[in-house]
């Protein structure tokens, strides 16, 4: 296996995705141990040379820039397959999110490569990478090695730390890619629509998060009343299930395709605790969960778990906090 690593760097609105930067840092660390180089690939219409070269600040030596549509996976698969073959790349690495899953899986198919997803750690053993992936609702961690010529690693959200590596610039090389016919048969009509109000949940010390268990959009009133009773530095957050349903704004969503938060207190009401939600709130100092299902996965990572009906508990909890303050 070649020792060079290629990272897909996702960019939007003139900036790289934090998870992509974490993936670059991790690739730099691993390439160092393997004795290879960490390179990156950027696909888009709007990636400036300055932006691409800035990946050098995280240790990437080279950036392949490909002109192509943004926000779609299959053109990136074409581009990465071409670069991996031409440059003899050993591993492709993706930061957590959504596009990386689609690209990484498509690339695995294209290159007949082994792929590991939801990876939380990678190490070098005998000159090869071994990936760690939690399974079965995080109750076990499996290890994955590659017997294919190319190995693909798709990270879990926030798996890797961003590590600045000085102010050196990466060399930027433009690569012309002829896209597969089928890759051009999906077209972006509109991207990044923000549904609902522009609320701020990242600065709050206390988050009251609501999920499908609230039953309907109006259920969020219970969360808002509780947040108000918990003090001025509190806000209300949500799961993808309720944001997709239109019950609460996207800006309040925590998780894999939402925000990452680390409040002092995270209080979940009617949330099952899916991995894709957990990855966005794992950093919370204290987790309280109210769920009527004793088997809900969220109880496995809560500090205080309350098995019960949120419709009974939330209003009384709000009252108790109000009378305490008053």
């Amino acid at each position: 296996m070649s020792k060079d690593i290629l990272v897909y760097a996702l960019h939007y609105d003139g900036a790289f995705n934090k998870n992509s930067l974490g993936a670059v840092s991790e690739a730099v660390r691993l390439a160092g141990e393997l004795g290879g180089e960490a390179k990156a690939i950027v696909v888009g219409e709007t990636a400036s040379t300055e932006l691409c070269a800035s990946l050098g600040h995280y240790g990437a030596t080279k950036v392949y820039r490909v002109a192509g549509p943004e926000g779609l996976a299959q053109p990136v698969v074409d581009a990465m397959a071409q670069v991996v073959r031409a440059e003899g790349i050993g591993y492709a690495v993706f930061g957590g999110g959504l596009l990386g899953f689609e690209i990484g899986a498509g690339l695995a198919a294209r290159l007949d490569a082994g792929v590991a997803m939801e990876v939380t750690g990678i190490r070098v053993e005998d000159g090869r990478l071994i990936a760690e992936r939690p399974i079965l609702g995080d109750t076990a961690i499996s290890e994955i090695s590659y017997r294919s010529d190319v190995g693909i690693v798709i990270a879990r959200l926030n798996a890797f730390e961003i590590a600045p590596a000085g102010d050196g610039e990466a060399e930027v090389e433009d690569v012309a890619v002829e896209f597969s016919a089928f890759s051009t048969r999906a077209t972006m009509i509109s991207r990044g629509e923000q549904r609902g109000a522009d609320v701020d949940i990242e600065g709050a010390d206390i988050l009251v998060a609501g999920g499908r268990g609230l039953g309907r959009a109006e259920g969020f009133e219970l969360c808002e009343a509780l947040a108000a009773a918990l003090g001025s530095n509190s806000a209300v957050a949500a799961t993808r299930a309720v944001v997709d349903a239109g019950w609460y704004p996207y800006a309040a969503q925590i998780g894999q395709t939402g925000k990452t938060v680390a409040p002092k207190l995270y209080l979940a009401a009617g949330i099952s605790g899916a991995i894709q939600h957990k990855v966005g709130m794992q950093g919370a100092e204290n987790v309280v969960a109210i769920n009527k299902d004793a088997n809900a996965p969220i109880f496995e990572f809560s500090d205080l778990g309350v098995i019960g009906d949120l419709n009974k508990i939330l209003p009384k909890l709000t009252e108790a906090l109000k009378s305490r303050a008053g």
Binding site: L98, R191, Y250
Partner: peptide, 8 residues
């Protein structure tokens, strides 16, 4: 929904 909001 993708990383930056809703795409069509």
């Amino acid at each position: 929904q993708a990383e930056y909001g809703y795409d069509t």
